[in-house]
Simulated assay, not measured.
Amino acid sequence: MAWIVLVVSGLLEAVWATALTASQGFTRLWPSVVFGVALVLSMGGLAFALRTIPLGTGYAVWVAVGVVGTALVGAALSGEGMGPARVLCLVLIVAGVVGLKLLH
Rank of each mutant, 00 (worst) to 15 (best):
M1F: 04
A2P: 02
I4W: 07
V5E: 01
L6N: 04
V7Q: 02
S9L: 00
S9A: 14
L11H: 03
L11M: 13
E13R: 04
E13F: 02
E13Y: 00
A14Y: 14
A14K: 04
A14N: 09
A19D: 11
A19Q: 03
A19F: 13
A19P: 11
L20T: 06
T21V: 05
S23Y: 14
S23T: 11
Q24S: 14
Q24V: 01
G25E: 10
F26E: 08
F26V: 09
T27S: 15
R28A: 12
L29H: 15
P31Y: 04
V33A: 07
F35P: 10
F35V: 04
G36R: 04
V37F: 13
L39C: 12
V40D: 07
M43Q: 01
G45H: 07
L46D: 14
A47N: 07
A47T: 14
F48T: 02
F48Q: 11
L50G: 08
R51D: 11
I53V: 09
I53P: 03
L55H: 05
G56E: 11
G56N: 05
T57Q: 07
Y59H: 03
A60I: 06
A60V: 08
V61E: 00
V61G: 00
V61P: 08
V61H: 02
W62Q: 03
A64C: 06
V68L: 02
T70H: 10
T70A: 11
T70R: 00
T70Q: 08
T70E: 07
A71W: 03
A71S: 10
A71C: 11
L72F: 15
L72W: 14
A75Q: 11
A76Y: 14
S78M: 03
S78K: 07
G79K: 05
G79V: 12
E80P: 11
E80K: 06
G81M: 03
G83I: 09
P84C: 02
A85W: 13
A85P: 00
R86D: 00
V87D: 12
L90S: 05
L90F: 10
L92F: 13
L92K: 05
I93R: 01
G96D: 15
G96L: 15
G96T: 11
V97D: 06
V98R: 03
K101Q: 06
L102R: 08
L102F: 15
H104R: 02
